[in-house]
């Protein structure tokens, strides 16, 4: 009975072949995406719900451009949930979660002048919140809005400095 509950060598081999085949199919269909991600280039992500003219879209920026932008006065804006921001965020970032933008926008506008260059981020490639927030901020009159699509995960994985909110 116990022999019946354990997989045979043939079954193990077939399982390996199955995984190998599925991975090969997945990679052949998505090779461009995987290559871009591993080469550190930007994967352009646009929310499917947005059908606005191109000039309304924030511009994507790569990791390599960040230091120059920060040196010239750009500010990070964290579009993730407030508790994620409190745990850890990029240096100097201001929290503006997409889900709370209506409640926080007034205070944000008072704190951040419209001519400020903004670099929005969230949970990395595939996370649409920073892009959607960028469209909203452009509509509110901010003109220099960029999206760092590698976001928090890429910054963290490159070993860069992070900040946390001091807990009382």
């Amino acid at each position: 009975m116990s022999d019946r509950l354990l997989p045979s060598r043939r079954v193990l081999l077939e399982a390996l072949v199955l995984v190998f085949f599925a991975v090969a199919v997945g990679l052949s269909l998505n090779y461009a995406l995987v290559l871009r991600a591993f080469s550190g280039r930007t994967v352009v992500v646009k929310s499917a719900s947005l059908n606005q003219p191109a000039q309304q879209f924030p511009q994507p920026v790569d990791y390599e451009e960040l230091d120059d932008l920060l040196a010239t006065g750009s500010r990070f804006i964290d579009a993730r949930d407030a508790h994620l921001y409190a745990d850890s965020h990029l240096p100097g970032a201001i929290s503006l979660p997409l889900g709370e933008v209506d409640q926080r926008l007034e205070a944000f506008s008072a704190q951040v002048p419209r001519e400020t260059s903004l670099i929005l981020y969230c949970n990395g490639f595939g996370c649409p919140d920073s892009f959607d927030l960028g469209v909203r901020l452009i509509a509110e009159g901010y003109r220099q809005v960029k999206v760092y699509e590698g976001g928090f995960p890429e910054w963290r994985d490159r070993g860069r400095q992070l900040e946390t909110v001091e807990k009382r």
């Binding site: 997945g26 991600a37 949970n123 990395g124 490639f125 996370c127 649409p128 994985d157």
Partner: peptide
Amino acid sequence: FAGQVAAYQILPYAFNYLVAATLPFI
């Protein structure tokens, strides 16, 4: 899907794409 995998904060960032490209087909 890569964004969802990245939100787990487990894998190095580019590997989230590798998982997203292959796991659904498995």
